[in-house]
């Protein structure tokens, strides 16, 4: 199943947290342009995997390559060059609360480019329109936004530099079903038009069916990767419970 040119490649990843083994030799390849969804029970280490790939946590052993470069053996300069090629959407948005939405979106622009301020304002306005927010959101502070708007604004910030990969940590958690479906549609359309690779941690079965090209299930400290149908055929009890429990069946029914 190894693709010729994986954009993210994880090999033999072992993570220990407080003496507890979270990942036991996890392997994962993410192909350019796909939407991969990481699912798993609460506390199974999905977010830890995401945080390891973007360099927020150091695994005990194993290797992580993004764009073919070794994330773990990287100096600060190389890491900075890498960081502008991806965007991360954190669970609750993680917008800087002391800045307006427009200023939030402009943070990466200010840090990595020498775009003049008027153009920067225009870029902020485009990104807001891309994620479906009104233009007047630009001057608002994160505390004035609803949860769904915060996520959209945060996605706009993640997209500020037109990254090749976006990491989404539970993009639809805490959204009402309509807002969640709209967010799914938004990610799907952006992914298509911008050619993004999407690495997504989620619980949401509807999201999974709506936009994921492949699914990676984190069970018993290992990853099982494949298309939804292939993974669903796995006899593992947690996977069976997840996909064939009442919610899993409802989500399948909805897509058929």
């Amino acid at each position: 199943m190894a693709a010729p040119d994986p954009i993210i490649s994880v090999r033999g990843l072992v993570t220990n947290l407080g003496g507890r083994l979270i990942h036991d030799h996890v392997d994962l390849d993410v192909r350019r342009g796909e939407v991969i969804a990481i699912v798993g029970g609460s506390g199974s280490g999905k977010s830890v995997l995401l945080r390891s790939i973007v360099g927020l946590m150091r695994p005990a052993s194993g290797s992580i390559h993004v764009f073919g470069e070794d994330v773990l053996a990287m100096d600060n300069g190389a890491m900075r060059a890498l960081q502008r090629r991806w965007g991360v959407l954190f669970q609750d948005g993680a917008l800087f609360s002391s800045q307006t939405v427009a200023e939030n979106i402009q943070v990466p622009l200010r840090e990595f480019t020498d775009v003049p301020q008027p153009l920067m304002n225009e870029i902020a306005a485009i990104k807001l329109a891309m994620v479906g927010l009104e233009a007047d959101t630009a001057a608002k502070y994160p505390s004035e936004l609803s949860g769904g708007m915060r996520k959209r604004a945060s996605l706009a910030r993640a997209l500020a530099l037109d990254p090749e990969i976006v990491f989404l940590d539970e993009p639809t958690a805490g959204l009402d079903p309509i807002a969640a479906a709209a967010f799914d549609a938004l990610i799907a359309s952006l992914q298509k038009s911008l050619g993004l690779t999407v690495f997504m941690v989620t619980h949401d079965l509807d999201t999974l069916h709506a936009i994921a090209s492949r699914v990676a299930v984190l069970v018993d400290r290992k990853l099982k990767v494949g298309t939804i149908d292939a993974v669903r055929a796995d006899p593992n009890p947690w996977i069976q419970e997840y996909f064939s429990g009442p919610r899993g069946r409802a989500a399948i029914g909805a897509t058929r």
Partner: peptide, 19 residues
């Protein structure tokens, strides 16, 4: 072309004032 569609369909009115 797809990129143009994203922006063209969603092109905002004159950009918002920041602060």
């Amino acid at each position: 072309r797809p990129l143009f569609q994203v922006i063209e369909t969603d092109t905002p009115p004159p950009p918002a004032v920041v602060r």
